[in-house]
C-alpha cells in the first residue's frame, strides 16, 4: 500500500488531503449549530451600529483591541462579565482580535459614554495620558457608508435569517424609505456630542464616521440583551 502511494502522485495527493481535512471535519463542522445560537433576548445591530462596526473594521481597531473577556478574575474585574458564545451570534465577522495593545472593548458600552469616546477619538491623550493610540480626526469629517450597512442588514436578514423587522428589505426604494430612521438614530448620538462640524453634518442629513462608530461602541456590552430579558 505504502509503496503504491509513493509511486502515484495523484493518490498521494488524495491521501495528504484526507489526512489534513479530517481534523477540520471532526473539529469544526458538528459544532456549528450549537455555537450559533444567540443568548436570550439578543437584538441584532441597528443599521447605524452596523455602519459603526464597518468603521471599526475599516480603521482596523481590531489590530489593538480585543472583544473577548476571558473567564479570569483579573479580566472580569477589569472589563466586566466574561464573554458568552451566544453574545456573538450576530457578529459577522467575529471581532475578537488577537492582540491587546489597548484594553478589551467587549463591554465598553457599559462604562464609557458618547462624550468620552468623542474626546478620546479626537485626542486619546486628553483623556488617557500616556496613551499610544493615534488620534482618528478623519472620522469626524469622513462620511460613514450607511447604504452599505443597510445592504449588510438586508443580506444577513435574507440569507442568515437574522431577526430584523419587515422594514429592512432588498431594493433601493426600501432603502430610501428606511434612511430617515438611520438619521434619527444618528441625531440622538450627535445630541450628546460637542463637535460643531459633526452636529452640522448630521443636521444636513449626513452621518460622519465618528457618529456611527460611537453608536457601535455604545452597543457593545450587556445592553444588547439584558433590557429584553424580562418579558
Amino acid at each position: 500500500m505504502f509503496h503504491w502511494l509513493e509511486k502515484n502522485p495523484f493518490f498521494f495527493a488524495v491521501g495528504v488531503f484526507l489526512v489534513i481535512a479530517f481534523a477540520g471535519l471532526v473539529e469544526i463542522l458538528p459544532n456549528f449549530a450549537e455555537a450559533s445560537r444567540p443568548v436570550v433576548g439578543l437584538k441584532p445591530y441597528t443599521v447605524l451600529q452596523l455602519a459603526g462596526k464597518n468603521v471599526y473594521m475599516k480603521d482596523q481597531c481590531i489590530a489593538c483591541h480585543s472583544q473577548l473577556i476571558r473567564p479570569f478574575k483579573a479580566e472580569t474585574d477589569r472589563y466586566g462579565q466574561y464573554s458568552l458564545s451566544g453574545e456573538y451570534a450576530y457578529d459577522r465577522p467575529f471581532l475578537w482580535g488577537s492582540k491587546r495593545t489597548g484594553p478589551d472593548l467587549h463591554r465598553v458600552g457599559n462604562y464609557r459614554t458618547t462624550e468620552w469616546h468623542e474626546n478620546h477619538m479626537w485626542d486619546p491623550t486628553s483623556v488617557v495620558p500616556g496613551s499610544i493610540m493615534p488620534a482618528y480626526k478623519h472620522m469626524f469629517s469622513n462620511a460613514a457608508d450607511i447604504a452599505t450597512a443597510y445592504a449588510e442588514a438586508v443580506t444577513v436578514k435574507n440569507v442568515f435569517h437574522t431577526p430584523y423587522g419587515d422594514d429592512i428589505k432588498a431594493g433601493k426604494k426600501a432603502w430610501e424609505a428606511y434612511r430617515p430612521k438611520v438619521l434619527a438614530e444618528a441625531k440622538k448620538i450627535a445630541a450628546n456630542m460637542k463637535n460643531k462640524d459633526v452636529k452640522d453634518a448630521v443636521n444636513a442629513g449626513k452621518v460622519p464616521e465618528i457618529v456611527a462608530l460611537i453608536a457601535y461602541l455604545n452597543s457593545l456590552g450587556s445592553s444588547r440583551y439584558e433590557a429584553n430579558k424580562v418579558k
Binding site: F2, V19, F22, V26, E27, P30, N31
Partner: peptide, 24 residues
C-alpha cells in the same frame, strides 16, 4: 448525540492514523 459521535470519531480516527504511521 452529535457531540458523542464527534468524540468517538476523533478517537477512532486518531488511533487509525497512529497505527498507519507506525505501520509506515
Amino acid at each position: 448525540g452529535i457531540r458523542e459521535l464527534q468524540g468517538y470519531a476523533s478517537f477512532l480516527m486518531t488511533i487509525l492514523f497512529v497505527v498507519a504511521l507506525y505501520g509506515y
